[in-house]
């Protein structure tokens, strides 16, 4: 146990070293300033190091096996309907409470109020932000469903993704200008640090337990769907709302 922990700790140290070098270089060489609150920064760095090490340990012990065992259980059960329901619940449930999404939605409501798309009242803003969050969460649920269906059926990922990109491009020309930046960004913020390992393990687990599927070719791609559909759905939300 301890040697593994130490090895992970050293790995985490090297993962974090580049940031320390970059921040140090800019602070001392470019901006020519001392480091403020040195003690707090040292403690914070220690927290980051311990946190990353525990996270990596937990991935191998908890999240990866959990995602895989769920995939195997659903494959053994053989009910596509339950699998797709689970896929939707996973996508919707993990996204709707995502703090990064809540932040972006509130920001977007401010933009909409300034652009006179909605009224400048708190209530209008709150409704707009909630609508946006539900839209993104629905789109991620939908994305995981399509992605899982693709794994089960063995459809090639590139046609779906490229079709999706073309959808994004076409929508861009019709969507109101102020929503475009937010829509593009919302694709990136939906996939949180907890969701990614779980969803990846689920995809790879499904592809390994269904005969004729290759985990490398068919197992990955769920995250790609989850970052693509929010862009389309948010632009649609901007056009309707």
């Amino acid at each position: 146990m301890l040697p593994v922990f130490l090895k992970t700790l050293i790995g985490s140290f090297f993962d974090l070293l580049p940031i320390a070098v970059v921040i140090g270089f800019f602070q001392f060489v470019v901006l020519e300033q001392p480091i403020p609150n040195l003690m707090e920064i040292l403690i914070g760095s220690l927290f980051v190091l311990i946190g990353l090490t525990l996270f990596v340990q937990g991935l191998e012990m908890g999240l990866f096996p959990l995602g895989e065992s769920l995939a195997f259980a659903f494959a053994r059960k053989g009910s596509l309907l339950w699998l797709l329901l689970f896929a939707f619940a996973l996508g919707f449930g993990t996204t709707v409470a995502e703090p990064a999404l809540i932040a972006v939605a509130n920001e977007a409501a401010k933009v909409a109020a300034e652009g006179l798309v909605i009224g400048a009242t708190d209530q209008a803003r709150a409704e707009y932000a909630l609508g946006l969050r539900l839209t993104v969460a629905l789109s991620v649920g939908f994305a995981i469903v399509i992605g899982v269906l693709r794994i089960v059926r063995g459809w090639p990922v590139q046609y779906l993704i490229i079709g999706g990109y073309l959808g994004v491009i076409v929508m861009t020309f019709f969507a109101p200008a102020e929503i475009i930046g937010i829509a593009y960004d919302s694709g990136g913020v939906t996939t949180s640090t907890m969701t990614v390992p779980l969803v990846t393990a689920l995809g790879v687990g499904l592809a390994s337990s269904i005969r004729g599927r290759n985990p490398m070719v068919d197992g990955f791609g769920l995250i790609a769907f989850a970052s693509l559909t929010p862009m389309i759905f948010v632009m649609a939300y901007g056009m309707i709302g």
């Binding site: 946190g51 525990l54 996270f55 990596v56 991935l59 999240l63 640090t193």
Partner: peptide, 11 residues
């Protein structure tokens, strides 16, 4: 493992 991930993320 789940608890490790939670505590790790918090830190």
């Amino acid at each position: 493992g789940f608890v490790y991930v939670l505590v790790g993320l918090a830190f």
